[in-house]
């Protein structure tokens, strides 16, 4: 399991978390390369279906990050997102998907260090879980 390198779909909002990732990069802060970033205008843009589809299509985990409450570029987008993620996360864990396959965070544009820290945390947690056995489409 030591050489297991998970693929983590990472969806970042354009205004905070993506800028945070940028800052982590320009500040030369190291973080694992397991995350695959998709940029979206706002965490409110993320449809829970994205997450279900990504998992079915074979990513090991999903991490979604947006602006801190109150910081949303579109004022309230992340508040709407929060409700959706809550319902989705609870439902997936309720049916028996392991905890730790979906992560959410708030990272602002000034938090390069925080971005790298969470990327490391998420990656390590997923590595601990190992390759996904549930919800894997047979070929």
């Amino acid at each position: 399991m030591a050489d297991y390198e998970p693929k983590i779909l990472t969806i970042l909002c354009n205004w905070c978390s993506y800028a945070g990732a940028d800052l982590a990069g320009t500040s030369r802060i190291q973080y694992p390369s397991n995350i695959r970033v998709v940029r979206v205008p706002c965490s409110g843009r993320v449809n829970p279906q994205f997450i279900v589809k990504a998992l079915r299509d074979g990513v090991d985990a999903v991490w979604i990050s947006g602006c801190h409450p109150g910081d949303c570029h579109y004022i309230t987008g992340n508040y709407f997102a929060r409700r959706r993620f809550y319902v989705l996360k609870d439902l997936l864990e309720y049916v028996g998907l392991e905890k730790g396959r979906i992560h959410f965070s708030w990272v602002s544009a000034s938090e390069g260090k925080r971005f790298a820290d969470i990327a490391t945390l998420v990656t390590e947690e997923v590595k601990k879980l190992g390759p996904r056995k549930k919800f894997v489409k047979r070929r």
Partner: peptide
């Protein structure tokens, strides 16, 4: 609808 509104104090402790 539920997803068409929000409250500032909605549960958020699952978010890092």
């Amino acid at each position: 609808p539920f997803f068409g509104e929000f409250r500032y104090d909605d549960k958020g402790d699952f978010i890092l």
